[in-house]
Design a protein around this nucleic acid. Sequence first.
DNA 1: CTCTGCTCTTGATCCAGATCAAAACCGGAC
DNA 2: GTCCGGTTTTGATCTGGATCAAGAGCAGAG
Lengths: 273, 273
Amino acid sequence: MTHPFVRDQNRRPVACGDCGLYRLCVTLGLGGDDAVLLDSVVRRKRIYKRSEFLFHAGEPAEHVYAIRSGSVKTYLTTRTGRVQVTGLHLAGELLGLAGLDSRAYSCEAQALETTSACQLSLKQLEQAALLAPAVHRQMLRIMASQIRHYEQLLLLLGKHNAEQRLAAFLLALSQRLALRNFSATQLSLSMSRGEIGNYLGIAEETVCRLFARFQEQGLVEVRRRHVRLDDLARLRVIAQEQAAPAPAAGGGPGSSRPPVPDAEPSAPSALSH
Amino acid sequence: MTHPFVRDQNRRPVACGDCGLYRLCVTLGLGGDDAVLLDSVVRRKRIYKRSEFLFHAGEPAEHVYAIRSGSVKTYLTTRTGRVQVTGLHLAGELLGLAGLDSRAYSCEAQALETTSACQLSLKQLEQAALLAPAVHRQMLRIMASQIRHYEQLLLLLGKHNAEQRLAAFLLALSQRLALRNFSATQLSLSMSRGEIGNYLGIAEETVCRLFARFQEQGLVEVRRRHVRLDDLARLRVIAQEQAAPAPAAGGGPGSSRPPVPDAEPSAPSALSH
DNA sequence: CTCTGCTCTTGATCCAGATCAAAACCGGAC
DNA sequence: GTCCGGTTTTGATCTGGATCAAGAGCAGAG
């Protein structure tokens, strides 16, 4: 009996139209305005096998990477060998942004499974940006969104407990997959429990226990790396810390806290792009 | 008897030449190539009183801010009112980068003390970037360095204990001050214990106890917000986790860890820009 | 100068999640 | 099919730092 999970949803390559670099590629003059045409025109496509590196920290940065299929993790290493996963990148997303000032990559990027990615030359990009304002604007937009992403991650890791982090992780994943036209409720994790834990700042064992608990509560159905999200609504409640405990810390010198402006404009995304 | 601490080192405005936006300003045609001239030419200078806001999260982003003197904290707020400080910005540093895609500010920015800042119009910047490649490149450089900054912060918060975090915080502060020609060993904190703790993901009380311990060990001399760093070398050892415990987590699918490439190129900076 | 309201410090207790330990499980090699 | 090595799960214990509580110190207001 085959179990009900969709397998390897990331193997299917995203179309250029679903790719985060789409607007860039188009404006670069790589293809007309036609995504299908563009698909056949992008150069420097390459396949990376599981655990292969797209680039290393410190290496001179010459390309930005757009993932077509598969997934990639990025991480930093302490000089004592400790690792901090800083990102999980899915099909249609971008890598190597910190290299946009054309110095060096700031982290390791390693394929989590068989992955296909397009390389875009930074030099080409810079030239294109000078010719086409839209490209320039798009580059800024992309980097700014990465900054926002990290800010949200900082908030998640700094002020949320293990349960909230995992719930937010699953929801963000779901949202990102949906954005690329994959299922929002059936997903196959490309990271191990250990990697997920490392990313979220919790222990491997805790990730396991949380999955078990979520399953008990009927929130999800988990079997190894296959996850089905059964109750998105309740997951959202968990991720957003229902209880309102302390009135916040370090009120600041003036203590004139802003009137809790409804800052966060939209979704409960924290780990999304 | 006056005690030996230098007070309010940040009150002295940095010269344009020491400012992170210098290259931008110059290329903008705001002044010749002369920093002194530039100093008198920059428009939209404004003074913010302690606890006043430079901008709020969600507000339409129209400017980038360059701090001339004083200091500013940036932070995010949960919908339940919890706060996460995401940055401490000193004289000569920049604010509002996530707004560079000309949408909205992503966080609150609040003056920690009397602060003077220059506003640079984003529109002006975008125009200038189209005319001058150097401006464009500089904008990317600035954003990329912010991304790197957050990555390092993530590593610090994710894989270092309270002691290491505080040591790293002090060292980074020292380094940044030195960069702007302030003393590297005499500093006056503009954030309260609570704010520092919030930033570093540790409790206010723990910050106190750590300061006390560092002082016992002769590493620093602390009196309220005045800190003298007496043993930078030993602080560095602490910040860089001398002990090499576990061989790291979540080795990844291939487990082919990179040969610990001497990633981090230079200083033990984590909280620096 | 005194008063007032923080901010900081220090002590005592507690707990979420880490760590340690050991099975159970599973996919792929052969 | 069987075997092997890594991943996942589950249980038992431990602990760094949070939280709770209560003074002490200090700056600014008047």
